[in-house]
Amino acid sequence: MSLREVSRRAPRILQRGDSLLLDEGAPPTLNDLADALQFALGDGRIWFNDNRMVLMQADVLGALMAQMIQDKGTQHTRIQSMRIGWQEGVKLAHIVMNRFPQQDLTAALAAGPRLHTIEGYAKVTTRRFEFDAKRKTYHGEFHWTDSVAGTEHIRRFGVCDCAACWMQVGVPSGYTKTLLGFPVIFREIECVAQGAPRCLVVGKDVGG
């Protein structure tokens, strides 16, 4: 069932949501999402639902980002990384909608941080998110502990004066926008690459 159809049948459910009111057992739970990840060991394939995945060492990803910075500069690397993250977020949102069709949009949004954790980007702790679909408003705050991008950046370049988890920030932007149907931009307010103990990420609707 599409989100449009869900909205038509149960508009009150989709109008507003608050992570503080979420039933922790509402699907997709962390276990539900983990069950969707399958290893076809004899075939050389990893699947998340019907989407093929790959494993990559964090050190290799860090080396790739460092090479991009050296070749094209920080600004170019930041923009391209966020675009890649955005596309991943969009695809993850479609996977959740297809595998876990439901009327609880709050639970679908809560799956985003869980997926971020499963993929190994960071341990994500949701401080709170809330939205009003009718008014097209969203606000969310999240902690990322042991972020791959931030850790790799500081290992290669030392403490810097800017946040460095560019691709990771793009993921929730694409994911949340796809589910809600209006733009939501995530920004990294604090980053381990700046010397912070963990990353603080805040998402807001464009009007906010």
Rank of each mutant, 00 (worst) to 15 (best):
M1L: 15
R9E: 15
R9G: 11
A10H: 15
R12V: 11
L14F: 15
G17H: 07
D18S: 08
S19E: 09
L20A: 14
L21W: 09
A26L: 09
T29V: 06
A36Y: 07
A36M: 13
Q38E: 13
Q38M: 11
D43G: 05
D43H: 10
G44L: 11
W47N: 04
N49Q: 14
M56P: 03
Q57S: 14
G62K: 06
L64M: 12
Q70F: 09
K72H: 15
K72G: 05
R78L: 12
S81H: 06
W86R: 08
G89Y: 00
I95R: 09
N98M: 10
D104K: 01
D104T: 02
L105E: 01
T106K: 05
L115T: 00
L115I: 12
Y121K: 06
A133D: 05
A133E: 05
T137D: 07
E141N: 00
W144I: 01
T145V: 10
G150K: 03
G150E: 02
F157Y: 13
P172E: 05
G181C: 02
V184F: 03
F186H: 03
V192Q: 10
A196E: 03
P197A: 10
R198M: 08
L200D: 03
V201T: 04
K204E: 15
V206S: 11
V206Y: 08
